[in-house]
Every structure is written in structure tokens, then in C-alpha cells.
Design a protein around this nucleic acid. Structure first.
Length: 570
RNA sequence: GGCCCCAUCGUCUAGCCCGGUCUAGGACGUCAGGUUCUCAUCCUGAAAACUGGGGUUCGAAUCCCCAUGGGGUCACCA
């Protein structure tokens, strides 16, 4: 067997949905730390809550990680784009906790029970509820009173009970002692004796509880550094107590600051429902009839929509339908949301890594180094520069990073990625622009207008028009075609005649011709360009005309101009 | 409420560990100009912060204490 890597980190999501953006940062930091120390990054799926876990979620999370470029050296295997991620080189799997019950958790449970360090508890729900009520009435903290411990004092009887199959949970016998540890991020943390009570380590259904499974697995998998979000800080004493009970050496712990929305609330899937609900309510405020028509417009069940509106459900289906109908973007909270919105993995990782960490380096012109890739992280990441303060997730800054990343791509790369994104999320565009050359022109036209791929698709909307299927913006037509004694229309006559002579019909040639026209007529580029825009797109906004017209094509361009002339010439 | 963690521009942060070089730097956003065939990009500039109070010290954003504020956590979820 090969020697064990010096550092082994892990990311241990529970498969209850897509990868949360905060989880992505945790994974990224764990990955970067392992890489920095030439160690392994391990992925473990914590699916001990069978009711909420699903294999699709696990697969989705793995795909999200892979898309971000965060690849695990050990863990479940995933085939993506022709390669395989994961595996079990040290033989420490399986990596799904639900598959480790008999082999790993149960023996550890019995070991503790036999040593008197854990015991079966048979309290009824009523008994426990009464104890909790007593504690809250007395304004005291609830601590399990160890009733079951005294009910069955003899260890042999406890083992007999467990083996009998009679319903029970297993509780950890928590020693009355101080627990302290040095957190790699926060520093020394001290917890007084009595703070950790006899928490449950195995449920009635035989599945292990989180704190117990984590300890068994982190030890069994040889994890050297546990890095996770600060919400887990208060779990650490429980886990350390367990390590002590087993006689295992705990790993190093590092707790990272949390990430919130700009308004300080937690980033959660429900944000989407909240946002969609507000949007719909705002629309209803403007048009009261919408309230009754909403379900019909959204093509959804009326009761479902009604309940959604009143806040009785947070249906993601309703939220998505509202977003689609009003053409609004829902707040992104999962990696898949960002992907769908047209964000690129590199700027996401870059931005994420700056939430609670920074390299502390300067660029050549003396500014703080902010832009870097995962390879840089793998080389320079360190726990000592992780901050301690919670961060707010500023989507505006992420957007700026994404825009910069797109701007920095060369044209073929952008063309490739833009096509891939469109094919998955907005297939109408590649379906319409099938010619490779025109796709390249389209990409050139759209690239610097695209802060996200979705922006790019919006900027490319002109390419989707059919030659007689769009309306002319009346105000734009008045100003650019009819004003000043039909100056625009007269220009279009000339434009049409000259464009007919352009061959090949390519951006550069078109551009040169339009400039000549602007000069010769004295109309200026604006005087030439705007009438054309109105004619071929119906509005005054489009990418530069060379690319725009080339993408539309000679035949369509001329057809559109003639249609426009016919429409406005009286 | 108990326990625990945290505290620099609106936001992410540099500086803090090893007090002086900080009239506190950068980035995003905002505002004002400029370039441009529209939109967008791009360029230039501006406004914008050390939570408060005590201490230690010749000197504190930097060290200590208190207050205040924010956050996490108290499940047969993870």
C-alpha cells in the first residue's frame, strides 16, 4: 500500500439537494489546503438521514463540484467528460455513510457500550418532553437526566437489551470534564465541564447520528484536518469527547466564517420563493386582475399558486414559473443556479475564495491581488489567512468577476463555452444560428455585452427574429426614420442599394461600407447606423452593425430593410 | 435565555500576531466627467470605514478590560 498522504481533508455534504454556494466554498478551501500540502481531498456522502437523502442529490453535488474544478482524490467515483474522479486508493471506503452501518458504526457502538461509555436509552417521548418542559419552565438548560442509565445499571443487561431488538437509542455517556482545543482559524476554544450532555449517537432506526458517524469516519478515513463552517463549532466538543472515549487522536479543526445574503439573512433555497412571491405581489399591485389569472398564466394548479402567494408553501416550481413568465432571474443560492444563470466556474471559485480568505499579495502595479485561479489557490492557500468574520455574498462583485473572466476569454473559447451553455439552457439560439462562421460573428458581437452567458443570449436576441416577425418601436422609428423629412428612410434606400453590392457579406466589409456612407453623406455614423438598427431589429439597440448584419445575413438584411421601407413609406 | 464565536468604507477586504512608515490601501458598487454608430465595454476622477468607553504606552486601527452590536448553537437533521 502506498504511504498515506501527509494531509487528508474531506468535504462531507449530506445529499439533500444541489450543492449550496457556501458548501462550495468549504469544499474549495478543503481542496486547496490538501493540494497545497500535496495531500488528498476526500469526498464523503453523509446520507444517514434516509428520508431526506437521495442518490440524485449525491450525484448532483458531485457534478457541481466537478464543474467547479474541485476534484476529489478519494470518494465515490464519477465519470465526467471522459475522465473518472474519485476512487478508493487507501481502501477506506465505502464513502456513503449508509453503507457503513454494520461494518463501521455498529462495532464502534458496541465497543463504547461494553466499556460503559455509551448506553441504550428507552425513554418514551412523553418522558423526554416532560423533562424538557420542566427545564424550560425553570428557565434552565435542558440536559438529559440519564434516567435510562439508572434503569439498567448493569452493562450485560444493556448489551442484552440491544441484542434483543427492543426499540432503543444509544446515548453517549459524556464525562464531566473540560474540553479545549486549538482551532486553526479561531484559536483556543474552551468549553466548561457539563456543557456536553449525553447526546444520542445511534437512532432508534439503527442509523448513526451525525456527530458519531463523523468521528468514526474521520478517524477511519485518516482525516488530518477538518475544515468546515462555523455553524459546526459547537459540535466540536461533542466530537472531541467521542475521540477521547475511543482513544483516538482528534484531527486539527478549523472553522470558517459563514456567508450570508446582503441583508444578513441566511442564503437558502427559500430565497427564491420569497423573491418570486414578492415579484408576483408587486405585479398584482399594479394589475389586480392578475391575482385570478396568475395560475392560468403560469399553467399551474390554482390552489398551489394561491398557497404560494399567501406564503403557505415555497414551491420551487411556482417560483420558477413566475421567473419564466416575468422574465426575471431568481436569486442564485446553489451552484447549479449560478451555472444556469451563465456564470463560469473559474470566477465563482475566485470570488468564493475571497470570502474569508485572501492571498495577502500585491499585483505588479501595487494593488491587492484579487484575480487568481484554482491552481494559484492550490499553491498559495493557507489556513492562517482565513478570516474570522462572517461575510455577505455580494452578487454585484461576483457579476463583475464573471464579466471580467468572459472578457478575458479568447474568441474561440468564448464561442465554445457560449454554445455549450446555450445548448443546455437556451437552445433556440444555436438552433437558429447553425453556420459556424456566423456563430463566431455572433459571439464577437455579444462577448463584451455578456456579463453572464445569459446576458450574451439576451444581447443575441436580434438573431432570433424572423424577417417579418418583429415590431418596429414607434418612438424609435419616428426619431430615426421619419424625423427631418424622412431622413432615415432616405438613408435606408441608399444603404440597401450599397449593401446589395457587399460580397462577401462579412463584418469588416459591411463596416467599411457604412463608414464610407457616413462620410459621404455627412450624416455621421449615428445617422447611418440608427436607421439600420430600427429597420433590421425594430429597436435602437444592437451590437455593432458589422457583426449584427453579417449574422443576420445579406438576404435577410435586405428583406428586413425593404419591409421597413414598405411599412413607413406612405 | 445558557454556551461559544466575531467586530476596518454600502460590500469583500489589506493593515493587527512583531504598536510609530496609516493624512488607513485595494476591489466591487455608487456618483461626476471622457471615448464610442445604439447598448455595453473602456479611461479619468470623487465621495466613502478603524462600534463606543476605559486602560497600557512618548505614541494604538494595531496590546488589555468593559460595554454595545452582530452571528452561531442548544433535534432520534447534518
Amino acid at each position: 500500500m502506498p504511504p498515506s498522504p501527509p494531509v487528508i481533508t474531506r468535504f462531507a455534504p449530506s445529499p439533500t439537494g444541489h450543492l449550496h454556494i457556501g458548501g462550495a466554498r468549504t469544499a474549495l478551501f478543503c481542496w486547496a489546503f490538501a493540494k497545497k500540502h500535496h495531500g488528498h481531498f476526500l469526498l464523503r456522502i453523509e446520507d444517514t438521514d434516509a428520508a431526506r437523502s437521495s442518490d440524485e442529490s449525491a450525484k448532483g453535488i458531485m457534478e457541481d463540484l466537478a464543474w467547479l474544478g474541485i476534484e476529489w482524490d478519494e470518494g465515490p467515483e464519477l465519470q465526467v467528460s471522459g475522465k473518472s474522479i474519485g476512487g478508493d486508493p487507501r481502501g477506506v471506503g465505502p464513502f456513503f455513510q449508509a453503507r457503513r452501518l454494520k461494518t463501521h458504526y455498529d462495532p464502534h457502538i458496541m465497543r463504547l457500550v461494553e466499556q460503559g461509555k455509551a448506553y441504550p436509552a428507552i425513554d418514551t417521548e412523553e418522558e423526554l418532553a416532560a423533562e424538557k418542559k420542566k427545564a424550560s419552565d425553570a428557565k434552565a438548560n435542558y440536559r438529559y437526566n440519564r434516567a435510562s442509565l439508572t434503569k439498567i445499571p448493569d452493562i450485560k443487561d444493556r448489551i442484552r437489551l440491544i441484542e434483543s431488538g427492543e426499540p432503543h437509542v444509544i446515548r453517549f455517556f459524556s464525562p464531566h470534564e473540560e474540553i479545549n482545543f486549538t482551532d486553526q482559524v479561531l484559536g483556543d476554544v474552551k468549553i466548561a465541564p457539563g456543557e456536553v450532555d449525553d447526546f444520542i449517537i445511534r437512532r432508534r432506526d439503527g442509523f448513526p447520528m451525525y456527530n458519531f458517524a463523523v468521528v468514526v469516519d474521520d478517524h477511519g478515513m485518516g482525516i488530518t484536518h477538518v475544515m468546515r463552517a462555523q455553524e459546526h463549532l459547537s459540535n466540536t466538543p461533542r466530537q472531541i469527547a467521542l475521540y477521547r472515549a475511543f482513544g483516538y487522536t482528534p484531527p486539527a479543526f478549523g472553522h470558517m466564517p459563514l456567508i450570508f445574503n446582503m441583508d444578513g439573512t441566511k442564503m437558502s433555497k427559500r430565497d427564491k420563493a420569497k423573491f418570486a412571491r414578492k415579484s408576483l405581489k408587486d405585479a398584482i399591485a399594479k394589475d389586480a386582475t392578475l391575482k385570478d389569472r396568475a395560475a392560468g398564466l403560469l399553467k399551474l394548479d390554482a390552489a398551489l399558486v394561491h398557497d404560494f402567494l399567501s406564503g403557505d408553501n415555497d414551491s420551487l416550481d411556482v417560483a420558477a414559473a413566475i421567473a419564466a413568465h416575468f422574465k426575471i432571474g431568481l436569486p442564485e443560492v446553489q451552484v447549479s443556479d449560478f451555472r444556469e444563470a451563465g456564470y463560469q466556474p473559474e470566477p465563482i471559485c475566485n470570488f468564493l475564495s475571497l470570502l474569508g480568505w485572501n492571498p495577502g499579495m500585491k499585483t505588479e502595479d501595487g494593488k491587492d491581488l484579487e484575480k487568481f485561479d484554482n491552481a494559484f489557490l492550490a499553491q498559495h492557500f493557507g489556513i492562517e489567512r482565513i478570516g474570522r468574520t462572517n461575510a455577505k455574498f455580494d452578487r454585484a462583485k461576483l457579476l463583475s468577476f464573471n464579466a471580467d473572466a468572459i472578457a478575458a476569454m479568447d474568441e474561440p473559447e468564448f464561442a465554445r463555452r457560449f454554445r455549450a451553455w446555450c445548448e443546455e439552457f437556451d437552445p433556440a439560439l444555436p438552433a437558429k444560428v447553425t453556420d459556424a462562421q456566423r456563430w463566431l460573428w455572433l459571439c464577437r458581437a455579444v462577448k463584451q455585452r455578456a456579463k453572464t452567458m445569459r446576458d450574451g443570449a439576451k444581447a443575441a436576441a436580434f438573431a432570433l427574429l424572423t424577417d417579418d416577425g418583429y415590431q418596429f418601436d414607434q418612438a424609435a422609428a419616428q426619431k430615426n426614420l421619419l424625423d427631418k423629412d424622412n431622413a432615415g428612410l432616405k438613408m435606408l434606400d441608399e444603404v440597401a442599394a450599397r449593401l446589395a453590392t457587399v460580397d462577401p457579406f462579412e463584418p469588416q466589409g459591411i463596416h467599411v461600407l457604412l463608414e464610407q456612407l457616413a462620410q459621404q453623406t455627412g450624416a455621421g455614423m449615428g445617422g447611418v447606423a440608427q436607421p439600420i438598427r430600427v429597420a433590421v431589429t425594430g429597436s435602437t439597440v444592437s451590437p455593432p452593425l458589422g457583426e449584427t448584419l453579417a449574422v443576420i445575413g445579406k438576404q435577410s438584411t435586405l428583406a428586413r430593410i425593404h419591409r421597413c421601407l414598405a411599412a413607413f413609406r406612405t
